[in-house]
Amino acid sequence: MSDMFGAINSAGSGLTVYRQWLDAISDNIANINTARPTSEAAFQQRWVEAAPTGQPGEAGSGVAVSGISLGDPQGRLVYDPQNPLADKNGYVRMPDIDLGEQMVQMIMAQRAYQANLAVIDRARDAYQQALQIGRQS
């Protein structure tokens, strides 16, 4: 896009990043009870890595997801002999995800998404005000 809407485009790239962060949190919460046998790796927590786009010292280029890193494959061993996946000692491997931490991250991602929406709103208002220059009422 053109440089005319630099603020809107930067905030839009932020929205994409925070949407992906929310996707990752949703994935983590959905898999929080996914048990695996001890012979396999546990579900690994997803972490979204963000990085600024564009050159240093340049404004209006935004942010992008640079990668997804994964949490601990060891998980935690839980004694659950009733589970059909349990080994001979009665243990299964559960993902090492803290639900409270995920909820906190979800609030952060949601608030940041809202902040970017507010930037787009203000930028649009500013551009519309600029169009009023020289207009006789």
Binding site: M1, I8, N9, L15, T16, L131
Partner: peptide, 19 residues
């Protein structure tokens, strides 16, 4: 995939038309 992409594009085309 991204709802905001559509809304941003629609806002931009509205503003450009107004200009």
């Amino acid at each position: 995939t991204d709802v905001h992409d559509y809304m941003i594009a629609s806002t931009q085309s509205t503003l450009m038309t107004e200009l």
